[in-house]
Amino acid sequence: MKKLVISIVLVNLLAACASQKPHETTAVPAAPAASAAATAPATASAVAAKTAVDPLNDPTSILAGRSVYYPFDVAAVQDADKPLVQAHAAYLSKNTARNVRLEGNCDERGSNEYNLALGQRRADGVMKMLELGGAKTGQLDSVSYGEEKPKATGHEESSWSQNRRTDLNYAK
């Protein structure tokens, strides 16, 4: 419902911009434009994409992916996950009001303390990439849970591979 309203506002706005009506003063469209920009940070991309849906909430968007996965004892973002990180970086650079927390996790191999450090290195690696991709430092925070909050608890690779990851957790 809310999205629909924003869409209508945007469509009206575009119409107004392109309209020939000479009586319309700049002040009238300026007000909704400013408020639209403030309440819907996705304006710019929405205009370009001709859609008003926040891509973060679009299940078909690449942004729907919120986890980066790693091989054992590795903290560098793998090639397969780079487009995902890049997309989030682009999103954050366009939506400066959004904040994201990078949460590094590890499988249980290694000591708890070593894994805490490795998880931090993983989270910081993603954070660095997001910064390089245009996100502001203030939008980002990184933490590590090491092996303390496993998603899967088995002692085998199928569990471990799920636990070796950095989650991108957007603030609500």
Partner: peptide, 26 residues
């Protein structure tokens, strides 16, 4: 870079209607 883009787009919204008298819709 990004700010520039937003600025251009927003600017257009202000500028275009003001000049609407000079330019055609096309």
């Amino acid at each position: 870079m990004l700010k520039l883009r937003v600025f251009i787009l927003l600017g257009l919204c202000f500028v275009v209607p003001a000049q609407a008298g000079l330019f055609s819709d096309d």
